[in-house]
Design a protein around this nucleic acid. Structure first.
Length: 330
DNA sequence: TTGCAGGGGTCAA
DNA sequence: TTGACCCCTGCA
């Protein structure tokens, strides 16, 4: 990937970088495809999102300038971009090539890829991803986001945005500066979160039976963190086993953590949405999660994780993208 | 206002 | 393989 980075300051004095040479980057698709919970669209903007990752706040937008796609990252300089955000957004990977390969595999994927162009799989912090997807079990996105925000507010480090950042957000959204939030919280570290009991966690974020999972997993993680090197080199099944050693992690959550923290791309989280896609497109009948999992690992191989994201996003956002495709899988 | 079903699973029997 | 688990939301 040959990306070009231009560093500058906005009128407010906020450090920014403009990235060109990366056509596969659509903020709405990246942040609303179900992989992350701490990125939110700035009200009254079409394509600008603010999020927190590893204790850093960033505003992301994309537009076309002079016929060229430009990604603007605000509140970072070039050094921080190269040292952190470039990897977080997986900007080294050639998604156009992945899309080509998936489209060749099967007609349904071709349709899904066409719809979800611009999705990128983020490399999120493993502990945050682990706890977030434990909370996601049998839960819906607004509530998951609410639980996570409350946990962060209670146990995470406070981050005060610079005045220039608040002014920038106010300007691009047309909002009054006083209405723009300037306070954020990092996701708590294993040490911070493991200090809380399940009762504390329950009082804080009302996550029900998942609170016990959060307590146990935070404490276990503090003593025995994920061995990401081992996870990357092990077989997919062994990697899943390592994740499932944490309480509250079953097959679906394990695959989500592996995929969305950028550790593996050959896993395929099967939840009710994905199962619906597979049943509708490939099986034409009801299947179990295990049956679905066995099918996809053979059918999609190393690119299973990307296939999952495109299929899932297409099915959830607009199931009609598959309507003209019946009978075209191979 | 109330009651009920269902939600992007996991655990234990 | 099945039921219980906590809590919220939408709907009748």
């Amino acid at each position: 990937m040959n990306i070009t980075v231009k560093e500058y300051f906005t009128d407010e004095g906020l450090p920014c970088v403009d990235i060109t040479g990366c056509d596969e980057f659509v903020p709405a698709h990246i942040f609303e495809c179900g992989q992350c919970f701490r990125w939110n669209r700035v009200p009254d903007t079409e394509n600008t999102y603010v999020g927190i990752a590893s204790g850093r706040v960033l505003a992301v937008s994309a537009c076309v300038k002079n016929g060229e796609n430009v990604i603007t990252l605000a509140n970072t300089d070039e050094a921080l971009f190269r040292g952190f955000w470039k990897d977080y957004f997986d900007l080294e990977r050639d998604y156009a090539e992945i899309q080509k390969e998936l489209s060749r595999k099967d007609g349904y994927l071709g349709a899904a890829v066409g719809y979800g162009r611009g999705i990128r799989i983020l490399k999120q912090e493993p502990f945050e991803t682990l706890i977030s997807f434990i909370i996601s079990a049998n839960n819906n996105i607004p509530r998951i986001k609410g639980c996570i925000e409350k946990l962060c507010a209670a146990y995470g480090k406070r981050i005060c945005a610079e005045d220039a950042f608040v002014s920038y957000i106010a300007r691009i959204s047309g909002a009054d500066k006083s209405s723009v939030c300037g306070e954020y919280h990092a996701f708590p570290s294993p040490e911070e979160l493991s200090a809380a009991t399940k009762h504390d966690i329950s009082a804080c974020c009302r996550a029900g039976y998942r609170c016990e999972y959060i307590e146990k997993t935070s404490r276990a993680y503090k003593d025995s963190p994920m061995d990401t090197c081992k996870i990357k080199t092990a077989s997919a099944d062994d990697a899943r086993k390592m994740l499932r050693a944490y309480t509250g992690v079953g097959p679906k959550v394990a695959d989500c953590v592996l995929l969305f923290s950028g550790l593996r791309t050959d896993v395929f989280p099967v939840d009710v949405w994905v199962r619906r896609v597979l049943e509708k497109l490939y099986f034409k009948r009801k299947v179990t999660a295990a049956e679905a999992g066995a099918f996809v690992s053979g059918h999609f191989g190393e690119l299973a994780g990307y296939a999952q994201q495109y299929l899932f996003y297409g099915m959830r956002e607009d199931p009609s993208v598959f309507d003209s495709m019946s009978g075209q899988s191979n």
